[in-house]
């Protein structure tokens, strides 16, 4: 019985094939097909639903008008729905640190000049002692380097403790709890909302998501204007990123080259770039924390 069914299925398939050959294979008598357009090679790239390349696509805004009429693209709504609730917690309490205030608030900041116990000063423990100055005597040798009474208006130790949590996030070696105890409920919940077929794709960054963060970092990286040949200066920076998309730690992979002052200056520029206000937080999809919590950025100078 079973074998009869399979023979029947095979027979149907063969007949369908013959029918298809008749329909598509016979010559087309009425009109000659026009010249074939040259083939365009297309590379398929996975593009996520929540694309984050709004800024990148701004350059093509002329094309956006017809797109507005098309209800077809299913992508726009989800990110707008997701982002507002996530941006709200940022200005609130979590980190009293590097957030630059918008321009209108500047007068307020200036009025706080005498207040030396601002978060900025307590973030860095190195401010307990102003670094020593190298002494250069243009005429008489060996005068003592001045002591630093003026510079000792430093935050007392208790304040450092007060910001211990902040310091932990900024230390170059990320504290283990960050990686061991995954504070990533967001990353785990979204996949359950998706179909089984979408889940593995969503766990990785899509091309457009990677392009978004690349564009963001491109805008922050400013190479030193050294006229030495920059071609040899390509280097990697390993990043560990907090769930809030701020950089927890950044490390130059090739430490051996730091003795070269031009390399060191370029490396410092890269470390500045990943912590710059324009790159904080990084333009990464918040629900894919496990994909980007560890990242390697290769910096290579522009050509020409």
């Amino acid at each position: 019985m079973d074998s009869m069914r399979s023979w029947l299925a095979a027979s149907i398939a063969v007949h369908a094939l013959i029918l298809a050959l008749i329909i598509f294979g016979l010559p087309y008598f009425h009109t000659k097909p026009k010249d074939m357009a040259p083939m365009i090679s297309v590379e398929l790239v996975t593009v996520g639903k929540e694309t984050t390349t709004k800024q990148v696509s701004d350059a093509n805004k002329v094309k956006e008008h017809p797109q507005e009429e098309q209800p077809a693209p299913p992508t726009p709504p989800p990110p707008q729905a997701e982002q507002p609730p996530k941006q709200e917690p940022q200005p609130t309490p979590p980190q009293p640190k590097l957030e630059p205030q918008p321009a209108p608030k500047l007068p307020d900041v200036a009025s706080e000049v005498p207040d030396l116990t601002t978060p900025d000063l307590t973030v860095k423990p190195s401010f307990k002692d102003m670094p020593k100055l190298a002494a250069v005597d243009t005429a008489v040798p060996a005068l003592a380097v001045p002591t630093k009474p003026d510079f000792k208006k430093v935050p007392p130790k208790p304040q450092v403790d007060q910001f211990q949590a902040v310091l932990k996030n900024l230390t170059k070696d990320p504290p283990k709890p960050l990686t061991d105890a995954p504070p990533v409920p967001k990353a785990k919940t979204p996949p359950t909302e998706r179909t089984g077929a979408q889940a593995p794709i969503a766990a990785n960054l899509t091309a457009s998501e990677m392009d978004a963060v690349r564009q963001q970092l491109n805008g922050c990286m400013n190479w030193p204007a050294a006229d030495k040949d920059l071609r040899d200066l390509q280097f990697d920076v390993d990043l560990t990123i907090n769930p809030d998309r701020t950089v927890a730690s950044a490390r130059i992979v090739d430490q051996g080259k730091m003795s070269d002052p031009v390399f060191a200056a370029a490396a410092r520029a890269a470390l500045r770039a990943v912590r710059m206000a324009q790159c904080t937080p990084l333009d990464l999809p918040p629900d894919k924390y496990q994909s980007w919590q560890e990242m390697t950025v290769t910096f290579s100078p522009p050509r020409g």
């Binding site: 990785n204 960054l205 491109n218 290579s300």
Partner: peptide, 23 residues
């Protein structure tokens, strides 16, 4: 196998060029 490879967390790698502008 495809599924397993897709879910394995490979380190994200990004190439950045940047600019050369006066600091």
């Amino acid at each position: 196998a495809f599924f397993a490879a897709g879910t394995a967390q490979a380190r994200v790698h990004i190439d950045v060029t940047g600019n050369i502008n006066p600091l």
